[in-house]
Amino acid sequence: MDDRFFEREYNPYESDASLMESKSRHADFADISVNICGIAMKNPVMAASGTFGFGEEYAGLYDISRLGAVVTKGLTLERRCGNPPPRIYETPAGILNSIGLENPGVEGFIRWEWPRLCRSGIPVIANIDGDNANDYYRMARRLSELDGLAAIEANISCPNVEKGGMAFGQHPESAYEAIKAVREGTNLPVIAKLSPNVTDIRQIAEAAVNAGADAISLINTLQGMAIDIHKKKPVFHRTFAGLSGPAVKPVALRMVWEVFEAVRVPIIGMGGIASWQDAVEFMLAGASAVAVGTANFIDPFAPLKIISGLKKYLIGQGIRALNEIIGSAH
């Protein structure tokens, strides 16, 4: 589908008064391509890990190569079955999930998903999650053999598993250890995905960068829970689950802001982004790119609307390139 046509079809922002006003004053071109630690993306909007499967599921609705990049579901060394249901629970403007990293394992991914994904014409970032530092090392090494993989995102923030996951992301020492292991296993760009369930996110970000992270992505889900008042028991088998969606946006934004002031590597911002206005906020706070997660479930076209909204915003503001606004609210 032609880009222009699409924008007319789906973009409800055309009538936004503030855009219209300034539109005529400026050129109708804005460069929204970004390069994050060597990952060249035609726009800064990615699909967040775990909310986009392996890219196939939404392909029936639109050409996924229109996105900036796709991040895979979290991979582990061995295949995992995930947690027993229920895995999803709705909360006001958010959802709690307890998927438990169900995935085909690194080898399953390479065998069944990669052959298709590598032809999708879009940067693919593999999200990995280990029980220990050695897992991170081995996965990074194995994935580096793939021809065309854009980067590795080390998830040190999954709240829904027994071992590893979020535990790594809660202390600067263990964050350092995990990211160091990934760094040693690969020459690809390494993105450290941080957990918001910490007292001081800046310390974790600094540790990750010291260990060799080329970029930081945040936030993963916020730990929460729900109780079934009829059964008088927690809804989830693992008691706690991860909160995402618009409800977490202010927290995510604050953390992007803090990390931007603490480290000098690019930031991929996420957490509740559902509109282009949300994305702009994250960029003004310091994100060089954004990822859309939960919003895909509500409006599968949300990432595309965000891409076209961003373009229009820049044009409306008379800004030629996206990087001019990154962190500019500081």
Partner: peptide
């Protein structure tokens, strides 16, 4: 029936127990 989020098979939220081990997605 299972609680669903995406409905297209992307989130793995709608797991139902498979007799072959592991889970299947109710939605996909």
């Amino acid at each position: 029936e299972q609680r669903m989020a995406c409905g297209v098979g992307a989130c793995l939220g709608c797991a139902v127990k498979s007799s072959g081990g592991g889970y299947l997605r109710a939605c996909r």
